Amino acid sequence: MTASHVKRAFKYRFYPTEELAFLSEVSSVPLQQCLRHSRTAFTGFFAKRAKYPHCKSRKESRKSAEYTTSGFRFRDGRPTLAKMSAPLDIVWSRPLPQGVGPSTVTVSQDSAGRWFVSPLCDDPSVRPLPASGNAVGIDVGLNHLLTLSTGEKIANPRHERKDRVRLARAQRNLAKKAKGSANPAKARREVARVHARIADRRHDLLRQLTTRLVRENQTLVIEDLTVRSMVKNHSLARAISDAAWHEFRSLLEYKAAWYGRVVVVVDRFFPSSRLCSTCGTLQERMPLHVRTWTRDCGTVHDRDVNAAKNLLAAGWAVTACGAGVRPQRSSPGGQSAMKQEASRREP
C-alpha cells in the first residue's frame, strides 16, 4: 500500500462568515443543544416514528435557546446565563421547589415580543393524591364548554369572540402598512399581542378546570373527538378552535398521570347523545339543534347531561369489568358470524 492510499484525519478550524457571525455572540451550549435536538429528530425519522425534520426560520419561528447546567448558574434566586455579566431581571410566576436545582433553562421569545425563562426540574410536591371513589363523565360542547354527569354546566367564555373587534382592527392596520419599512413589523406584533391575550386567558381557564377535575375525581371519562376533521366545518371551525378541546384533553391526561388518576377515552362513534341513560333505548336521529328530548319511558333529557351520563356509564364498564366502549358495528347474525360457524364445522 502506497502512502497515497493511507487515510488521514485532518482538523479544520471553522471561521464564521458574515451570515453566521451571530452564532459567536452566544454560548456554545445552546448551539450544541440544537445539534442534539437535530439528532433526536433524525433518529425518529429513520425509525419511521416521525416526519422528516424541517429547519426553523430565524425570523418567523419562536426564538429559543436551551442551556444545560454548564451554561447557567443561579445566584440569589436569579439565573445568569453564559456570556452574560449580570443575572436576568425576571418576575417569577411561582417559586422553584425547595432544595431542587434545574437541569436545563430555556429562554424563549414569542411572536408578541415577550421573553420567558423556563427552568426544568423535578418537583417533589407532585405525587399521587389519595384514592377517591368519585367518577365523572365529561361532555365537551360549544354552548357550554363542559357538561358533567353530575348536571353541572361550565359556561364557554368565548375568549376569541370578546376580542374579535380588537383583532380585526389590528389586522386591518397591518394590511394597510407599506412593505419594506419597519411599520409592518410593529403592526404584526400588535396582532400577535391580541392573539397572545386570547390564548393566555384560554390556557388559564383550562388549567384551572383540569386541576379541579383531577383533584375531585378518581376516574374521568371523556370522548375521543377528531378535532382535525371537525374544524373542516367552516360554520363551526372558529368556535371549535376557540374551545380548545384537544388542549383540554392533553392537560387532563398529563395531570391525571401526575396525581394517579384514570382517564378513560370513549370511542368517537359511541352514541352518547342518542342513547337514553335511563332505559337504554337508542334514538335514530338527533340533530344538533335538538337540545332536549323525551323518551318513551317518560324521561326528559338534556342533550349534554344525558351524553355525560352515558359516557360515565361506559367508563364504569371499562374500569369495572374491562368491557370495551366501541359500539357494535355489525349484526351478531351477519356474514362474519356465518363464516366463523362454517370454519368451525370444517373438518
Rank of each mutant, 00 (worst) to 15 (best):
S4Y: 02
Y12H: 12
V26I: 13
P30Y: 09
R36V: 14
G44Y: 03
F46I: 01
K51D: 14
E60L: 13
K63M: 03
Y67H: 05
T68C: 12
R75K: 10
L81R: 00
K83C: 14
A86T: 07
L88A: 09
W92Q: 13
R94S: 12
T104N: 10
S108Y: 03
G113W: 02
R114F: 06
W115S: 03
V117K: 02
C121V: 11
D123C: 04
S125M: 11
A131G: 01
I138W: 02
L142V: 05
N143D: 15
S149Q: 00
T150S: 15
T150H: 02
I154E: 06
R166F: 00
R166H: 14
L174Q: 06
A175D: 07
A178H: 08
P184R: 12
A185I: 05
K186Y: 04
R189P: 01
E190K: 12
R197L: 09
D204E: 14
L206M: 13
T210S: 14
T211P: 00
V214N: 02
T219H: 09
L225F: 03
R228F: 01
N233A: 04
A239H: 03
S241C: 09
W245T: 02
E247P: 00
L252A: 08
Y254C: 06
Y254L: 05
R261Y: 08
V266A: 02
P271D: 11
L275Q: 00
T278P: 01
L282E: 13
V290Q: 09
D296T: 15
H301F: 11
D304G: 02
W316D: 01
V318W: 01
R329S: 12
S330N: 00
A337Q: 10
Q340F: 04
E341I: 10
E346D: 11
